[in-house]
Simulated scan of single mutants.
Amino acid sequence: MKLKEFDFDYPYEKNEDYIQSLLDDGYEYLQATKKDYEKNHKASRINFRMQTRCITAFVERLVEKVNTPNFWKILINCGSNIEKNENKVVGGVYEVDYELNIEEFMYLSDIEKKMMTLQVLKETVIKVFEELQIDSTDFEKACEQIKNCNYKNEWIWKKKKNKNFIAEIVLVHEVKTAQIFLRIYKNKEYIREFEILSTYPDEFYFSQYLGRIKWVDDKTVAIEQKNGINYLLIDINRGIIKDWSEKE
């Protein structure tokens, strides 16, 4: 099996005082824990996973697929009160527990979050590889490459040339946002750029916009969504002339 993904999670940590207050109000225990999860944990879980994604996605892009015995993903479960259980494989996902104060993590600056994410990821994955006798050379090189570029996850999705210009779709994947830009070059000289999307830092939200790019005429670029239906038109002098949501 090929290892393709790395990810973080923040499993449910109960707020016992809140649960008890609900029990005192007549809630059943299962109802109380469900309400506690929705009110006190769900948003933190989503935010933590999203704010680590810029680094995990960066590593996935740089590391060649690794052969594993029986898993395609390594999932690191984090939390202050996490029980360090024996590592296990569930549905092809290798789960590892790691003690981390999520509240303190969320107060870090963006660059500190990137550094902490890479540190925990590197420490955990190398330990897993050592236990399973998997070569970690490529993975460690990828981690060093991320450090050397100051943790900036920026890359070219696609490019297209015409007679005079080059159009590039560039993705900038940060801790709290993912932005897509169209950059224009003439004879390899940078001319200008246009921001065409800013959204959540997760592929679920931005990958749908990463479709084909083509020149409609000498100075107009079309960027299609993956569905091949919705598209954006940009005049390289005037900017966006048709938004994603506009009908023909």
Rank of each mutant, 00 (worst) to 15 (best):
A178G: 13
M50H: 15
G26V: 05
T52N: 13
K214I: 10
I229N: 11
Q20L: 05
N81S: 08
I74E: 02
K114F: 00
F165P: 00
N230E: 14
Y98G: 09
V128L: 00
E16P: 00
L118R: 05
Y12G: 06
K226Y: 04
I169M: 13
D9F: 03
L3G: 06
E130L: 00
L22V: 04
W72Q: 10
Q133M: 05
L132R: 13
Y98D: 08
I74F: 06
E168D: 02
K226H: 06
V66C: 05
I46F: 07
A142D: 12
I196N: 04
L118S: 08
V128R: 01
Y205P: 03
G79P: 01
N101Y: 12
L22Y: 05
E38M: 12
D24M: 06
T220W: 02
T33F: 00
R61M: 05
I82N: 06
N164I: 00
E131L: 02
V63Y: 03
T52L: 11
I46T: 13
Y98Q: 13
I234G: 06
D202K: 08
N150I: 02
I169T: 13
L171N: 13
V59L: 15
T199P: 09
F129C: 02
I166S: 03
E64H: 05
N15I: 01
E112M: 13
A178I: 03
V96S: 03
K147A: 01
E140P: 09
C54Q: 08
A57H: 13
S109V: 04
G79Q: 09
N187H: 09
Q208W: 10
K159A: 07
A222D: 10
I74D: 01
I169Y: 01
I191G: 00
K242N: 11
L197A: 10
G91E: 03
N77M: 04
L62W: 05
I82V: 14
T56M: 11
E104F: 14
W244I: 09
Y151W: 11
A142S: 15
I19L: 05
I82T: 07
V221H: 02
E248A: 04
F105C: 04
P69D: 15
D7C: 08
V128S: 01
Y190W: 14
K113M: 14
I196E: 06
A57C: 14
E195Q: 14
K73H: 09
K214V: 12
D235I: 10
Q31A: 12
E131M: 03
R45L: 01
L75R: 11
E83P: 02
E103S: 15
D7M: 08
V172W: 10
